[in-house]
Design a protein around this nucleic acid. Structure first.
Lengths: 205, 205
DNA sequence: TAGATTGTTAATCGATTAACAATC
DNA sequence: TAGATTGTTAATCGATTAACAATC
């Protein structure tokens, strides 16, 4: 295979597979099949095999996939065979919750900075981290070579902060503010907005 | 058009359009075009027109869409022309953050109950709401006819709580626990897992 | 060996885009 | 009227599924 572009929809499923495989491993399981994994995550066995085949041959006919091996391979593919530093901007309830969340580290992430523009919060601590002024954001991120950020500021501030993140060299933003962001080519944004998720479901009720 | 099934991928874009239209209205804007809206949300104008045309004719040649009218129509379609009661299960940092979040109400949702199984938390208040025992979950949800829930418990407890939610008649679950849930036909799940979102982005870095 | 399951191909299905007549 | 923009059709593009030879 010569570096043909992988569709993003496939990339988006890999973390789901990885998560399920980790759960299987925690349960002491050693091997699985595309059928079993598919049933677990609600995706057809054929699709899982097709998705994985984009990246190599990870299974064995007759026996399926060695869970630990497939986990390693997926971590490599997703580049989470290392730990990424992540900055949080916005130290409200959501930023607070994310910063204290213990689940990031063994998924490949570590929150190393938190920022807010509220003077009352500056210098306060969340866990080991001290809340810094957004005035320091660009220089601190550049110095720390941070390329991932989570954005938990109000919608009204989100675009302005985004522009700072871009200026600071951030390449991927997980946006919790309920607004679409404009970013230049080469910067990726993913959106988490519980209201849009809920609205997508109420349609069916 | 005779009730032909709308693809879920289209349903999923409607809340995005709705959110952008509301921002436009807040800015005092009265009309928009598929081109302008598309630029705002990063979707082609043709696709927006095609999506909307599944539900009716909401625009005018030459002038585009009346924002307030289109908002009303999208709210009707998504069934958020009313306010839905939502239960939160899990009163950790994330459940806390969601319960205190002010942004739900004008998107069509209102958190009316919060549950946790930690005895130390029972009876404590988050805003106006008192944390209830998960033992009371099924009866309280049935009594309140709640059909939406947000799940913010640890992954280890998520499936067990999901079974209770299903038993209580919940039809849509927004799952913050990092695990795939099994639900019967007729129950919808949406997933929010920041780690999977981040992993989807690190692939490209 | 016999049964199971992969990786892959071809067929099907679905989604997006381009183009344009209709019309405000 | 002239310019703009819709709703819709046909063409294109992409994703999913079914099927099966290969092989553990």
């Amino acid at each position: 295979m010569v570096g043909k572009e992988i569709p993003d929809i496939i990339v988006g499923r890999l973390p789901i597979y990885l998560r399920a495989l980790r759960h299987m491993r925690e349960d002491g399981q050693q091997t699985t099949s595309s059928q079993e994994l598919g049933k677990q995550v609600g995706i057809s066995a054929a699709q899982i095999r097709k998705d994985l085949s984009q990246f190599g041959e990870f299974g064995k006919q007759g026996t399926g996939y060695l869970i630990s091996y497939l986990i390693d391979k997926l971590c490599e593919i997703l580049k989470v065979d290392r730990v990424w530093d992540v900055a949080v901007v916005g130290a409200g309830d959501m930023g607070h919750a994310l910063t204290r969340y213990q689940g990031f580290f063994n998924r490949g992430f570590r929150i190393t900075m938190i920022f807010d523009n509220n003077p009352d919060l500056l210098g306060k601590k969340i866990g080991d981290l001290t809340i810094q002024s957004t005035d320091a954001l660009v220089s601190a991120l550049k110095a720390g070579k941070v390329s991932l950020a989570m954005l938990t500021v109000p919608a009204t501030a989100a675009q302005k902060i985004t522009d700072l993140l871009v200026e600071a060299g951030v390449k991927a933003i997980l946006n919790y503010a309920p607004i679409s962001l404009n970013v230049p080519e080469g910067v990726i944004v993913q959106y988490i907005d519980p209201s849009t998720h809920l609205q997508r479901m109420t349609y069916y009720l």
